[in-house]
Design a protein around this nucleic acid. Structure first.
Lengths: 195, 195, 195, 195
DNA sequence: AATGAATGAGCTTTCATTCAT
DNA sequence: CATGAATGAAAGCTCATTCAT
């Protein structure tokens, strides 16, 4: 799908993505039909296929959007930090905050991770973030601030903690209060610092 | 579905569940059709609906099976431990090991967690395990072995770490070697121990 | 589609093929929808896909049926002939007669010949018949009954004459009376006999 | 569609017809969409419907163009001939040559002949040519050069031979070499001459 | 003249489920 | 218990055509 879009077309595309993202997040990918999406927006079915090759491509586009946004936030958060440990903490906090705010994107990431058709594109984004964190961890090890361990594994461990916390919050099983977030961040920092 | 099953009937039911579990784990719940399941076993469609009310009920039954098995393993692991901290570590390790062995069940848990129709029944099992771990954590706090923090949150943090590790392993993004498992367990123990 | 069919299933399959053949012959392949076919028979849409993988496969099955029938007729016609020339004439006449009787099959052959998706399977059947005729022509040349010329080309020329005649008849542009058939057969025989 | 077209408009119309003719010949009428045509030319959909009322009308216009061109060629070929038999042979040869050159038109004629919506307009053109040939045949009979037989049927027989030969050539099943053409023409001439 | 956007009926196909045997 | 057949709503998608600009 490589169409030259007018201003109006660009808006329609956004509109479709936003509405579909909501529906996917609420009902899941398979249970949400294209008909449901276009009816929800009060447009004809053809409109959908004017902007997207398929339902699959639509979700892919949404996911890419989300990953881009998350990545931006992480970069901005890390930007002003001076030490590796500071970068790590800021990165964690930025990820948690973004995920708490971007409920829809977060749920779509979770959804997509369980579907082979989408898991790969997610993987790429995740790996970028993980490798970034691993780099900072390696720096901290170099500086003797934390003991030597596989930095990639540690980065993934932190990711596991934060992801799970956000999930609980979105499912209303736990309130992600500032204190709770602090506890989780502390858990991570002590996890990497070791004895 | 409350049928008195003969010996042979019981086997058929197991067979259906095992085969369906494999297919669901490989292709996902929605993309796997009932037709695919019965054809794979070389039986007619009637067989399926003799043993299960619906495709949905089938997955629910599979999930319940898995949760029961996991719970058993966790209990057995904790049984011989004397201190709270030992119980915690053994519980973590048991969960990791089971999840690594039971690839199919683990994948189905992940799948089901993203589908509202199944998420609730999973939740229940998860909460039992979390509350159990939280109890041990509270015991350890009481004994002054770890600083006071929300034990439920800590338990969830550990769950996040282990789940993520297993996920990586099953996706071939990381080998869950004994060393890697040790690192993750260490991460958790230091996470709860704090400074 | 490799299904074990019961007596009843076999009948349904035949029924679908017969009805669809009529509709395809009347309206063409593309303009005839699966919905039209199943509605015409008063059955559900699923029935169609129980017996055929696709609309395309259905037409292929019909064509194969027709070709088999034509081939049988040609073989039977030639069977009792003693000389090459007699075999040729009987073969021509058998083809014409079959094509006149089997209006539907004949139209489907014409239809399919203009569609790349089906042309190949037709080709094979046609070539078998042509090669057979060419063999008889070569025999006649050997015997000095007709002058030497490319026997395949001559066989095709005869095929062109007969096909065209039948076409005219089915389109009501010409009555294929016994006299007309005789004229066409004569045309062919003189065409191959030469001066 | 009765539009006063500018010079440029005339060109656009030609361009659309030429491109569409290619696509129809390659993929068939139904499988070729209007979208495909306009996208192939890099123009908007409005252009198409500015020049043609419908997809159907477009094909009709193309077919009319082709028939006109063929008719011209046939007339020119016959022009210089003195005897009926010469006219017949020249007509045959002209038809074969044109059909070999005008691969696209020829394929479209074949396509259209199997579709009731277009068959009629083709029929008219074919009948003109056939009646023309039949007239020459009748002249030859009058002159005693060939035996008396239904001249229309003979003309159609010749048409069947030549059409089939060209078809084979376009499908790469046979090379229409000068010798092959001679053989086919001979076949026709002997076919009408008889014993 | 021309464009991109929109329409919506209709297409082929799928699939959970039911049923007669 | 088990089978093959049948159902029919609904899915994803296509496409000739129209329209606002």
């Amino acid at each position: 799908m490589d169409r030259r879009l007018t201003q109006r077309g660009e808006e329609r595309r956004r509109q479709l993505m936003a509405y579909a993202a909501d529906r996917f997040a609420d009902n899941g990918y398979h249970p949400t039909s294209v008909a449901e999406i276009v009816e929800g927006l009060g447009v004809g079915k053809g409109v959908f296929y004017w902007y997207f090759d398929s339902k699959e491509e639509l979700l892919r586009a949404i996911l890419a959007d989300g990953q881009l946004d998350l990545r931006r936030r992480q970069r901005a958060a890390i930007a002003g930090a001076d030490t590796p440990m500071e970068r790590i903490e800021r990165g964690i906090r930025a990820s948690i905050e973004w995920s708490l705010e971007q409920r829809v994107f977060f749920r779509l990431f979770q959804l997509a991770a369980t579907d082979d058709r989408f898991a790969d594109s997610l993987r790429k984004g995740e790996q970028v973030a993980v490798r970034d964190a691993a780099k900072h961890l390696a720096d901290a090890m170099q500086a003797g601030e934390i003991p030597d361990r596989d930095p990639v594994l540690l980065a993934h461990s932190m990711l596991g903690v934060t992801t799970h916390l956000v999930q609980l919050n979105h499912r209303n099983l736990l309130q992600a209060t500032p204190e709770a977030i602090d506890t989780a961040v502390d858990f991570c920092l002590h996890g990497i610092t070791g004895s």
